[in-house]
């Protein structure tokens, strides 16, 4: 059983706010979903050796890099706030 406290905690972990007005509904829906996927807990899987996945090399050789700054302006255009080519964010560490 999920409690409203559980949902609040998950929301905090996921950097999302669930409003108090939605909390009951979210929790009961959450419970129904967990109840359904909970069938996995009781599921007996056939024993036997774990099959190793077949691995293949997907790495590639470093190619010629693109010219520095080629995409800078395009990407910077999407910034919510910019200072030249830099992205402006709030100060995280203060000296207070």
């Amino acid at each position: 059983m999920a409690t409203t406290e559980d949902v609040k905690k998950l929301a905090a972990l996921a950097r999302i706010r669930v409003e108090d007005s939605e909390l009951e509904k979210f929790t009961s829906e959450f419970d129904a979903i967990l109840d359904y996927v909970g069938q996995l807990e009781k599921l007996e899987l056939p024993k036997g050796e774990k099959v190793k996945p077949t691995l293949r090399n997907v790495m590639r050789v470093d190619g010629e890099p693109h010219a520095a700054g080629k995409y800078t302006e395009k990407l910077a255009e999407q910034f919510p706030a910019r200072d030249g080519d830099a992205l402006v964010v709030k100060q995280i560490i203060t000296h207070d």
Binding site: A2, L10, A11, L13, A14, I16, V18, E29, F30
Partner: peptide, 17 residues
Amino acid sequence: FGEETRRRILLGTFVLS
């Protein structure tokens, strides 16, 4: 994020916790 998206993010956060 809309409601369903938030729900699935929470569910994902839960099953990975």
